[in-house]
Amino acid sequence: MSDGSPLDRAMTLAEMAPHASVTVGVLAGREESFPDGRLHQPPVTRLDGTEAPAYVLTNGKRGIGLGTKRNTTKPAGDRGTAIVVTDRRTLCLVGGDEADSVIEVPHDSVVAASYHTGLLATRFVLRTPRKQYHCWAKRSTSESLLAAAAEYVEERTTESPEEIETDDGANQLTYRGQPISRENHPGVPDDPPSDSGATDDGEGTDSATQNGNGTDHTEEGSESRIQYRGKPVDRSE
């Protein structure tokens, strides 16, 4: 399948994909809303010979959150972001000034996949033993697409996930080997409060989140510093 032009291959992969989110326009870099290209290099050219995309998420200005929602790799200028979920990995591509940022999360490194929806923002979240990736999606993304992508990834995880050794900045803050999060420490927010207001593609701060199991949560806590047993936890460590 590696033969032929990127456009020909994109057409073939889009026809084979199980979900309509995989489009020729995104794969081949021929979207009308991005006349100069969402990315410098079309996503289809980054796929291995027999690799097949199953789901695609996109956003205009949000990029990818590494470790936390605040630590983001954002697209430059008129570029954007594409998250391609294939049969092997989740490929996160962020258009930069001169080149694309490429963040790869193999399915066999994933501990859990989930999604979060809100009035102003939508996220597809991947967690490995020590890392976390917040893949922002445009707010019009359907919940059925997010749920299907999360289920697809979790079906391809292993009982003993291998950590991603690349230093990509996505390390989670931990205490005694456990991630500092609301799941492990009830009442403690995952991140400092984000700036209010939406971006130009309608993506802002989550007002509610939902995981892959359908459990709803409300973002809570206005403190910008996390404490553990009365002592502040330094996020820079």
Rank of each mutant, 00 (worst) to 15 (best):
T12P: 03
G25A: 15
G202Y: 14
G187V: 01
G96T: 10
P18C: 11
L57C: 01
A82K: 08
G67Y: 05
V233D: 00
D206S: 00
T209G: 10
Y228R: 13
P179I: 02
Q178A: 04
E51S: 10
G214T: 12
N213T: 11
S5L: 12
H134Y: 05
S5G: 08
P42C: 12
E151L: 08
G49C: 01
E143L: 01
E162Q: 13
S114A: 11
A82T: 08
Q132N: 01
T218H: 09
G212D: 14
T50N: 03
G63V: 10
T174S: 05
G95W: 08
D48P: 02
R130Q: 10
R225E: 06
L119C: 00
E162S: 14
S5H: 00
E15Q: 02
L7S: 03
T205I: 05
K74S: 06
A20D: 05
V44E: 03
Q132F: 00
P35W: 04
T81M: 04
G4T: 09
D97F: 02
V102Q: 11
V84D: 07
E143Q: 09
D48E: 01
Y228S: 00
E162N: 12
A150G: 14
A150F: 00
G118M: 04
P129L: 07
R62I: 03
A17W: 07
T90S: 15
K74W: 00
G80K: 08
T209D: 08
E151F: 01
A170Q: 07
D201I: 12
T174Y: 01
G49E: 10
S160P: 06
L146G: 04
A112F: 14
I226N: 01
A208D: 03
G95P: 06
R30G: 06
T86N: 09
S142A: 09
G95N: 06
G63N: 02
S236L: 15
N71E: 02
S109T: 13
H217M: 02
V188A: 02
G67C: 03
D78A: 10
E237L: 13
E219V: 15
T158G: 08
A10T: 00
G95K: 05
E203I: 15
L119E: 11
R225V: 13
H40C: 14
A137Q: 05
K231M: 02
G212H: 13
H40T: 14
E165L: 15
D8H: 05
T218D: 10
G212T: 15
T205Y: 02
A28K: 15
N211K: 06
G204A: 13
R88N: 11
K74C: 02
S236H: 14
G230M: 02
D206N: 06
A198I: 09
S194C: 05
D234T: 11
R229I: 03
V125A: 08
P161D: 14
S21G: 14
T141A: 14
L13P: 00
Q41C: 13
P232E: 03
G80H: 04
Y55I: 14
D8A: 11
D191P: 06
D190Q: 11
P75R: 06
D78G: 06
R9K: 10
V24N: 13
L66G: 00
V111N: 11
